[in-house]
Computed example of a mutant assay.
Amino acid sequence: MKDSLAGEVSSNQAEARSLLAYWAALHDLGKCADCFQGLSESHRSTLKNYPKPDASYQSHAFMGQAWLGQAFVGQGYGATRSYSPAFRAAQIVGGHHGRFTPINHVEFRSPLEAVPALGDGLWEQQRRAILAAVHELLGAPAAPKRVSAAGAAMACAVVILADWLVSQESFLVERIRAGLPSQGDRASLQRHLQDSRVVVPLLLQQAGLGRLAFKAGGFVEDFPFPPNDLQSSIAEKLPTFSTVTQGCF
C-alpha cells in the first residue's frame, strides 16, 4: 500500500508521507473565509476588520479546492492540463467530505474572481500565511512531478480517514485541555505538532487500525462442522500468504 501510493505521486515513501501530511493539514483551508467564519454569531464581532464579500455561501471544501489550485502552482506543482499535479492535489483537498467537485479553468486560474465568497484583502493574507506556516512546519515537501488518478483517489481516502479520526470530540477536547498554541509563532506551532504526533498512534490503535492479529487455531475450532474444499484451501494457504505479504503494508 505504501509503495503503491508513493509510486502514484511520483515519490518515495518519505516524500509521499510528507505530501500526505501537508495535503491533510490543508483540508479545511476553505474555512478561512467570511461565509464560513461568519456562521458563528460569537465570531462575527471579531471579523469587523475583515471584508465581507457580496457573495453567497460556498462549501468550504470547494472553496479550499478552488483556492489551492493556484497556490500549488506557486509552489512548483505543474499545471499545464486538467490532470496536472496542481489540479489533482487541489481535488484531493476538495474531496475530503467524500465527494469530488469538478473545477473549471476559470476557478482554477482566477479563484478570487470566480469564487468571490473566498474574499480578498485580509482573508487572502490569512490564507497565504496559513499555507506558508503549514508548508514550513511539515518540512517544505517538494512539489510532486505527477499525481495519478489512482494516487489522488488513495491520497484522498487517507485524508478523509485522518479527518474523521482527529475530528472526534474526545480527541479534540483532549488536545484543547493539553493546551493549544497561545502564539502563532513557529516554535509554539512546532511543539503542538510534535505533541499531537505523540498521541496519534494511540488514536489509531483505539480505532482498530493496527496490524491484524489472528488467534491461534483453525476452522474446526471456530465452526461445529467440517470445512469444504474452498474453506480448507483458505485455511491452509492464507497464513502463509499473510506472512509473505505483511511487509507490503
Rank of each mutant, 00 (worst) to 15 (best):
A178L: 08
K145N: 10
S148W: 07
C156R: 15
S167D: 15
P141Y: 06
I176R: 14
A152I: 03
E169V: 10
S148A: 09
G151H: 06
A142P: 00
S148D: 09
L165F: 06
F171P: 01
S170Y: 03
L161W: 03
R146S: 15
F171W: 11
A155E: 02
A162N: 11
R177Y: 06
R146V: 00
E174C: 02
A157S: 13
S167F: 07
P141T: 08
Q168T: 09
A178S: 12
A152W: 02
G179D: 02
W164T: 09
C156A: 13
I160V: 15
I176K: 12
A149Y: 05
S170V: 12
V147A: 05
A143M: 02
V147R: 02
P141G: 07
V147K: 03
A149G: 09
A157G: 08
S170H: 09
Q168D: 10
K145H: 09
A143T: 01
P144Y: 03
V166K: 08
R146K: 14
A155G: 11
S167T: 14
A149R: 10
I160E: 14
E174N: 10
E174H: 10
E169A: 12
V166C: 13
R177C: 08
M154Y: 04
E174I: 00
V158P: 01
D163P: 04
S148G: 09
M154N: 07
A150W: 00
A162Y: 07
Q168H: 12
L161M: 11
A153Y: 01
P141A: 08
A149C: 00
R175K: 14
D163V: 06
V158N: 08
S170D: 11
A178W: 06
A155Y: 01
L172D: 03
L165I: 13
R175D: 05
A178Q: 14
A142H: 03
A150I: 05
A153H: 04
L172I: 13
A143S: 09
A162T: 15
E174A: 14
